[in-house]
Simulated assay, not measured.
Amino acid sequence: MRAPDSVLTDTENPMPKKLIAAGRVAVSAYSVWSREKIGDRSDRLQDTWYLYNPGTGTYGRTDWAKLDVAPGMKLAAVLERDLPARRIGLLDMATSQVVTWVDLDHPVTDVSWSPDGTKLLATAYDRDPTIRTHLSADGNSYRTPDPGRTGFQVVDVASGRASFHPVAAERDAGSFPKPASVFRWSDDGTLVFEPDGQKGYDHRLYYDLDGRRRDDAPKDVVTYQRAGVSPNGRLYADGGTPPGPETTVRDVATGKVVGRQKMLQLLAWADDEHLIALGCAGACENEFHNGLVLVGIDGKTKVQLSGNRENTQRPGSWEPIFTRR
């Protein structure tokens, strides 16, 4: 199995400094998460973002609250602190300067590029959905106030026009709001979806770009694995057999397993035969000690891409964004 083109690694640093990439995708940015205290018994999630700079070939720390990188890795969409934000910035990654601001009529707390890089999708909230209140001394007990999710914004990047589409958050049988969920693009970018809280992670509620429910829409292949469907559309990433670690690749048409990998999670397709995965450090004594690995469908070809992270379940761990380059 031939290795993918242009494999770039940074295994020497605890957090990446040099570009990590393989085949069609790269780590375009990553975030380091923590909890910021905002009151005696309240806090909120704080992401510190590191964005790739093609001029220096390195990742640099930013002050943005949220960001996502467009296919081609020339533009990033950014949100200012504090959330929710009233505008989206389009940032030139080579200069680190915002070239355009898109004003919004409803504030948002996240942003993502469409697969073809022509549109932006942002979920609208009245309040920051990451805030926790009534924290116990050990931080294990808390409340999450209703963040007031109001719908989603779609931005046409070429014109800068933003359109808001109201979609009420789901509520349970007692009329209490369900945990806040964000909208994401369907695989082909023609629809957006949110998880169907009534049926579980593998069910989605789809909407067209005008905010209309599309129960008749063709469904994406959905698994716990972030990699999803291969570039040629023939294969998809799936889980393995407990106790693991194990992941699998299956045929879309038949569901048959065509490859097994001793990985924790499959994150992105490098090409039609290789994936970027989360692999255990050592003999996998601790699943929270892991790093990025390039692995073939057959599980035999392996290249370590990043240094291993420790205690990934705790604040201070970094989380990558993968973008088509």
Results as ranks from 00 to 15, higher is better:
residue 203 H to I: 00
residue 183 F to L: 08
residue 213 R to W: 11
residue 213 R to V: 10
residue 203 H to S: 15
residue 175 S to N: 15
residue 205 L to G: 02
residue 188 D to G: 02
residue 181 S to P: 00
residue 215 D to G: 15
residue 185 W to D: 05
residue 175 S to Y: 08
residue 191 L to K: 13
residue 189 G to C: 01
residue 203 H to C: 06
residue 181 S to N: 02
residue 206 Y to A: 03
residue 177 P to I: 11
residue 215 D to P: 10
residue 213 R to H: 13
residue 214 R to T: 11
residue 192 V to M: 11
residue 195 P to H: 12
residue 194 E to W: 00
residue 209 L to K: 06
residue 197 G to D: 10
residue 179 P to Y: 03
residue 182 V to M: 07
residue 173 A to M: 10
residue 207 Y to I: 01
residue 183 F to N: 05
residue 194 E to M: 14
residue 185 W to S: 03
residue 175 S to M: 11
residue 199 K to W: 08
residue 202 D to I: 02
residue 186 S to N: 06
residue 212 R to N: 14
residue 182 V to G: 07
residue 187 D to N: 11
residue 195 P to W: 10
residue 188 D to F: 03
residue 171 R to I: 11
residue 175 S to E: 14
residue 180 A to W: 08
residue 203 H to G: 02
residue 196 D to L: 12
residue 209 L to F: 05
residue 195 P to R: 10
residue 206 Y to F: 14
residue 190 T to L: 08
residue 192 V to D: 06
residue 210 D to A: 12
residue 213 R to G: 07
residue 177 P to V: 09
residue 207 Y to D: 08
residue 214 R to F: 10
residue 186 S to D: 07
residue 178 K to M: 15
residue 202 D to Q: 13
residue 203 H to Y: 15
residue 213 R to K: 15
residue 171 R to M: 06
residue 212 R to P: 00
residue 171 R to L: 01
residue 187 D to V: 05
residue 177 P to E: 09
residue 177 P to Y: 12
residue 205 L to T: 09
residue 202 D to W: 11
residue 204 R to M: 09
residue 186 S to Y: 04
residue 185 W to R: 09
residue 194 E to C: 07
residue 199 K to E: 13
residue 214 R to H: 10
residue 200 G to E: 04
residue 192 V to R: 04
residue 199 K to L: 14
residue 171 R to V: 12
residue 203 H to D: 15
residue 179 P to T: 03
residue 207 Y to C: 02
residue 209 L to E: 04
residue 207 Y to V: 03
residue 175 S to K: 13
residue 211 G to N: 13
residue 208 D to Y: 04
residue 212 R to F: 05
